[in-house]
């Protein structure tokens, strides 16, 4: 377990141990195999985009990385997921609460707690041991990080549900950043937003490069191409999702070796 230190609440300036190595990862729901044999290296402090049609296990993979799969009855994860210092993330004895603090998640639908903006930070920060006196400072720093501070600083005690969809999603990003994670997983963070809000959120995700390891699932190929360093293409093979193409973003978009991936990327580009 990583002890909560007082200095790491917020994006850190230089990266360490934030990369992930996935070897033969599979995800099963009771009798159904959602994902099989995924091998992927996620570089430290880079942005990795996961693309592909719906239902080929991209979200399942994100859930497996920070163990949200534990919440789903009958869900099993196979294979090996290791972080930058070689800790096995699927280890059943791992302290998952500490793990989820190190590996944050932003969901497709913005999900602020139905409390005030301040409580949205206070609850997780206090849970992870930050003194009450420092909550405001960490909240302000991270709300500035996502460009929300000027919009909400006068109404921190109002319900977070009063914010627009785009603001709510930025609040969720700031809330995840406030715990000082090494990795943030984004599950289609823009797909529930209008185009303008979507562009703003995308800009703030892109700004995380070099400070936090980002893994983003997106259906927007143009977005993947704009912000990602590396890209993984998912497809259905033998009734289960798997990764069929992986590499530097320009290499993969320039000419994928896998036929399905090539057609998919070309269709999206054209």
């Amino acid at each position: 377990m990583i002890p909560p230190s007082s200095s790491d609440h917020g994006p850190v300036s230089s990266c360490s141990c934030g990369g992930l190595t996935l070897t033969g990862v599979s995800v099963h729901y009771r009798d159904f195999t959602a994902l099989r044999d995924v091998n992927l290296t996620i570089p430290d402090c880079g942005i990795t985009a996961l693309v592909g049609p719906s239902g080929c296990g991209k979200s399942s993979l994100l859930n497996a990385i920070n163990r949200l799969t534990d919440l789903i009855p009958g869900c099993r994860v196979g294979g090996s997921l290791r972080d930058g210092v070689g800790t096995e993330l699927t280890d059943p004895t791992l302290d998952v609460l500490a793990l989820r603090r190190r590996i944050g998640m932003v969901f497709q639908k913005p999900n602020p707690f139905p409390h005030s903006i301040r409580r949205n930070f206070e609850i997780p920060l206090r849970e992870h041991g930050l003194p009450r006196a420092r909550v405001r400072e960490v909240m302000e720093k991270n709300l500035r990080e996502v460009g929300l501070w000027d919009e909400v600083s006068s109404r921190l005690d109002e319900s977070a549900l009063k914010l627009s969809g785009g603001q709510q999603q930025r609040l969720c990003i700031a809330r995840a950043l406030a715990l000082g994670p090494e990795v943030i997983l984004f599950d289609e963070p823009c797909s529930a937003l209008d185009p303008i809000s979507s562009a703003v959120v995308e800009e703030h995700i892109a700004a995380l490069r070099g400070r936090v390891t980002v893994v983003i699932v997106t259906h927007n190929l143009a977005q993947a191409r704009r912000i990602a360093d590396r890209v993984g293409v998912f497809w259905i093979r033998d009734g289960a999702g798997t990764i069929v193409e992986e590499g530097e973003v320009e290499t993969v978009f320039g000419g994928a070796k896998d036929a399905d991936a090539w057609r998919y990327l070309a269709g999206g580009a054209g």
Binding site: N66, L68, L71, R100, F107, N111, P124, E127, R175, A176
Partner: peptide
Amino acid sequence: GSQLFAAAGLGLGRVA
């Protein structure tokens, strides 16, 4: 469920 997933995603324990 989205609320509970949000809580889990932030590493909140049962009490919180």
